[in-house]
């Protein structure tokens, strides 16, 4: 079974952390992920930019809006990592992927990307 561990926190509280504090947290987590990686059990690792950098695509108008998807009635269900040259291009990709579906796609530029070591099944 594969699991996604999605890290939620209050963005404003994270911004109140100093760079040293953030580095310490990442270092502490790395100790765990390195163990997993050695066993071939680590997938892609991504740290998202703040929600302020997000763009949301909805089914109803306006189709593309700024900001994160914030309605509490829907939850994050999965994520794709795509390599696109521009926001225009990724919006186009997301629109095509989303065609005919309800729900929302949120586009978030990646801050960090590590491919990991798990083979796709």
């Amino acid at each position: 079974m594969l699991y996604a561990i999605l890290c939620y926190n209050d963005e404003a509280a994270v911004e109140a952390c100093s760079k040293d504090e953030i580095d310490a947290i990442l270092k502490k987590r790395a100790a765990v992920t390195q163990e997993l990686a050695a066993k071939g059990k680590l997938g892609p690792v991504a740290r998202l930019m703040p929600t302020t950098a997000a763009t949301t695509i909805r089914s109803r108008e306006p189709f593309v809006i700024d900001g994160p998807f914030a309605e509490t009635k829907e939850q994050l269900l999965g994520f794709y990592i795509v390599d696109c040259a521009s926001l225009e291009e990724v919006i186009d990709v997301a629109r095509r992927m989303k065609e005919g579906e309800a729900g929302s796609f949120e586009i978030r530029p990646l801050r960090l990307f590590e491919a990991g070591s798990i083979a796709a099944s």
Partner: peptide, 12 residues
């Protein structure tokens, strides 16, 4: 990177 992402979004 964050700033350029914001800027690109703004210009749209």
């Amino acid at each position: 990177a964050e700033a350029l992402a914001l800027l690109e979004k703004a210009l749209r």
